[in-house]
Simulated scan of single mutants.
Amino acid sequence: MSVRVMFEGGPADGVVQEYPLLDRALPSLYWHRDEPSELRGIYHLLNRDPDPDTGVWRYGFTSP
């Protein structure tokens, strides 16, 4: 099983990413990108359940 998440706000705003090694949503995730420039952020789970239509978990930006 995998977990699909959508990041809201911060440097990853609008990014949808799949985590194939996870079997459940975690309370927070660290996101980073090295190219073309370094960006990073910590995101926290926004809801107790994934979106009922897409199955995507929503994470909101909290810090760099």
Rank of each mutant, 00 (worst) to 15 (best):
V56Q: 02
Y59C: 02
A25Y: 01
T62H: 10
G55A: 12
W57R: 01
L26C: 10
P11G: 15
H32C: 14
L22R: 15
H32E: 15
L22C: 09
E35F: 08
P64W: 10
D49N: 07
D13S: 14
S2W: 10
L45V: 05
G10K: 00
I42A: 03
R33M: 13
D49C: 03
D51R: 04
A25K: 03
L45K: 15
D49G: 04
L26D: 06
M1R: 10
T54M: 03
V3A: 02
P50R: 03
E38A: 09
E18C: 13
P11D: 14
H44K: 13
P36W: 04
L26H: 07
F61M: 01
P50V: 01
V15A: 11
D49E: 15
R48D: 12
M6H: 00
P64I: 08
Y19N: 04
D23I: 11
Y59W: 08
P20S: 15
Y19P: 03
Y59S: 00
G55N: 07
V3H: 01
Q17H: 15
F7A: 00
D34C: 05
M6W: 01
L21E: 14
M6K: 12
D23P: 00
W57T: 01
G9Y: 07
D23K: 15
R33G: 07
G55R: 07
Q17N: 12
V56S: 02
L46D: 04
V56M: 05
L45Y: 05
L26P: 04
A12H: 06
L22G: 08
V5D: 01
V56I: 15
T54V: 05
L22W: 15
S63C: 12
R40G: 04
A25Q: 06
M1G: 09
D53S: 11
P36C: 06
I42C: 05
N47V: 00
A12T: 02
R40I: 00
V15G: 00
D51A: 04
A25R: 02
N47S: 10
G14H: 02
G41I: 02
L39D: 07
L45S: 06
R40T: 10
D49R: 04
D51L: 05
L22S: 11
D13N: 15
Y59M: 04
D34H: 09
M6A: 08
F61Q: 03
F61H: 02
A25C: 12
Y30R: 13
L46M: 12
Y59H: 02
P11Y: 13
F7L: 12
L39V: 09
L39Y: 06
R24W: 08
P50D: 05
G10R: 04
Y59G: 01
F61E: 01
Y59I: 00
Y30T: 08
S63F: 09
R33H: 07
Y19A: 05
P36T: 06
R40H: 11
D53L: 11
V16L: 06
G55T: 07
V56A: 01
T54S: 11
F7N: 01
D34K: 13
N47E: 14
R48Y: 04
P52V: 09
R58E: 09
V56N: 05
S37L: 12
V5L: 05
D49P: 02
I42M: 08
Y19D: 06
D53F: 09
V15M: 09
P52M: 07
